[in-house]
Each structure stands twice: as C-alpha cells, then as structure tokens.
C-alpha cells in the first residue's frame, strides 16, 4: 500500500460538489437568460418560468456553499509569501515546464483563484438576490451590471481551475473523490504542507 495523506475531508468534498453542481446549473440557466440564441437551454430546464425558479434557488444553494468554503480555504488563501509570488511570476511552471517554487497546502494559483471566486461569487450572489427581490431603477441597473461582471470573471477563471484539477495535473482529481493523495504526490506538489504535517 502506498502511503496516503488526507487533503480534503468528506465534508469539504461534499461541499465542493454542491458548489460545483449549483455553479453548473446557474451558468447554464444564466447563459439561457443572457443570450436569446441559447434560450433553448432554459426550455430544456422545463421552460423559462421554471428555469427562473431553478436559477434563483440554485443561487441560494451556491451562496450557502460558497460561504461555507471560507472555513476550508480562506485562511490558507490569505497566506501569501515570497514563494507564492515567485510561483505566480513563472505561472507555476505550466508554460516553461520548469520546477515551481515549493508550495503549501494550496499553491499560489489556487489561492488567487479562490480569492477571485470568493469575491466574484459574493458579488454575484448579493446582486442576484437584489435582482430577485427587486429594487429602485438605479439600483437594478447597477446590480444587473455587477451580476454580469461577476459572471464574466467566473466563466473566465473556472475553466482553468477545472483544467488544473483534472487533465493538467494527473492525480489531483482524486482529492474530489477520495480526498486522499499519495504522500509522494503531496511532496511533489505541496512540499511545505507535507513539512507542516511533519510527514517528511
């Protein structure tokens, strides 16, 4: 048996799946609302009326899930050190193929990604709630803009996260399914974390 380390608790994995699935539903229905040419998506969701209800309630689930992720990732994401800046400076070595500076439990890319998703996510949830509840004309114009601005940020960054967690880094995806990774893998990708755990 290979020696394994736990990277994500069952709760953390469950919550990440909730976030992922609600995001997926929200993006699909959102695209259906945004583009007339994609309105068939909402037809597939049972018609535009049902799609609106699904979008709004999936938004509530997404918001709750997002807030809960803070317990898991926020503290770690705010620890930005020189290794993190160095990592970002060479884009994690993903373009050059060079060895990246040693990283903690989350690498600098993941930290930055999380902070972006958290901010854009909170903005999209708050503006969505105001759109749902209705407000004065000026407020509606502003939140409508913010809702779409946050959406733009999310649709740009999320695909990179999905790629990084699957095809780009073989072995990463089992964190989402089993929560554990081989110690060897952990040492390679998150050496500072392994050191912290005292497993070296």
């Amino acid at each position: 048996m290979m020696k394994m380390v736990q990277k994500a608790t069952p709760w953390e994995r469950f919550n990440h799946w909730v976030l992922l699935l609600s995001f997926f539903v929200l993006t699909l229905t959102g695209l259906g609302f945004l583009y007339n040419s994609l309105s068939w998506i909402n037809t597939a969701f049972g018609g535009v009326h049902l799609a609106r209800g699904i979008h709004n309630w999936a938004g509530i689930i997404f918001a709750a899930s997002l807030v809960l992720t803070m317990a898991n990732y926020l503290g770690e994401s705010l620890k930005f050190g020189s290794d993190d800046f160095a990592w970002l400076g060479q884009l994690g070595g993903y373009l050059s193929g060079r060895e990246a500076p040693p990283q903690g439990k989350l690498n600098a890319g993941q930290k930055l990604f999380y902070l972006l998703v958290l901010v854009a996510g909170l903005v999209i949830c708050a503006s969505g709630l105001i759109l749902w509840m209705g407000a004065a004309q000026g407020t509606m114009q502003l939140v409508h803009l913010l809702h779409n601005l946050a959406f733009l940020i999310l649709v740009i960054v999320v695909p990179f996260h999905v790629y990084a967690a699957t095809a780009l880094n073989p072995g990463t995806f089992r964190i989402m399914t089993r929560g554990t990774v081989p110690l060897k893998w952990a040492k390679k990708h998150h050496p500072k974390w392994v050191k912290e755990l005292g497993l070296e």
Binding site: M2, Y94, N169, P170, G171, T177, R178, V181, K184, K188
Partner: peptide
C-alpha cells in the same frame, strides 16, 4: 501538455 510526475504516476485517479 500536462505536468507528468513519473514518480507519482501511481497516484493518478
């Protein structure tokens, strides 16, 4: 292409 880790390939899910 992806970051292949020969020594930890066994960890790929």
């Amino acid at each position: 292409g992806p970051k292949e880790d020969e020594e930890s390939e066994g960890g790929a899910a």
